[in-house]
Design a protein around this nucleic acid. Structure first.
Lengths: 150, 150
DNA sequence: ATGGGTGCAAACCATTTGCATAGGA
DNA sequence: TCCTATGCAAATGGTTTGCACCCAT
């Protein structure tokens, strides 16, 4: 995932506010900060990681609010909960179709796009499965830093 | 995943015993039962689900042992921990390459194979990422039972 | 002003760990 | 016999919930 620049971030935040209003969610200071932090992040942070970053700017925020807000935003489709092997849930605000490469050692998650995959047809075997709404590739391995560093 | 028939299961269990010996893991009653239960399962059970099934046959087994054993077997590559959105970890003994379709509603995980995907080349974007050891597709949606049932 | 959102603290649930015993090699 | 694996119970860590107050609408 690329970092949004300042202009993009503003756009994202405006869209976010509109989406909140449309969903009957109050636009609170906390929600804005949580979303802003997640939209800027490139590392698929956990609730606690977000909390630790936000508290510097918004010292009164509580961890529960972060959890509650993430759950709310996820329910309304404004952010995504990422599948992991770890026990901590991790999130992303990137809504454009992309895939993940996960390092088994450090847990880093890297976004990438893969048009070839996106175009492959789902196997006939699955035609009777149900209604498919999303398809993602997950690559696992050892990232470059971990290969070198250890 | 297809259920292994009685013969296949025997073969799997024998291979399992050999793998344990090779890895210097003692072949205990508990480990055999845990592996057998997982190898027979088709629903990617959690530790607790396995525990509840095994305790009927082995009333003295403890939940910790199930947790510890699953962790051990995973470390030695004899079973796999499945990526989920839920808080509970889920496992499978199926080691043949396959992919997962996950129901957002009931959480059911269905295995399927997808040769077309397996053959697609990883995008150039990832060439510098590190050492890729595994690639999987995850489809999300609503399974047939949930589409009908609700 | 009103109802949803937040902070606090306590509760919860899945999982892990310390320790003494038991059982496979 | 020796040491790993197990069972028990207590501890952890991440996440959720009840409640009273606050604030966006």
């Amino acid at each position: 995932m690329k970092h949004p620049n300042k202009h993009d971030l503003l756009v994202l935040l405006t869209e976010f506010e509109n989406a909140c209003r449309k969903a009957d969610l109050k636009v609170t200071h906390q929600r804005l900060e949580i979303f802003r932090e997640l939209a800027q992040a490139h590392d698929h942070p956990s609730a606690e990681m977000l909390y630790n970053r936000i508290i510097k700017r918004l010292p009164t925020i509580s961890l529960d609010t972060v959890y509650r807000t993430l759950a709310t935003l996820e329910k309304h489709g404004l952010i995504t909960r990422v599948q992991t092997l770890e026990s901590q849930a991790r999130f992303e605000a990137e809504m454009i179709r992309h895939h993940h490469a996960v390092c088994r050692k450090c847990g880093a998650i890297t976004d990438f796009s893969w048009n070839t995959f996106d175009e492959v047809q789902v196997p006939a075997e699955l035609s009777g499965w149900g209604r498919i709404t999303k398809r993602n590739a997950i690559l696992e391995g050892i990232c470059n830093d971990c290969v070198k560093g250890n």
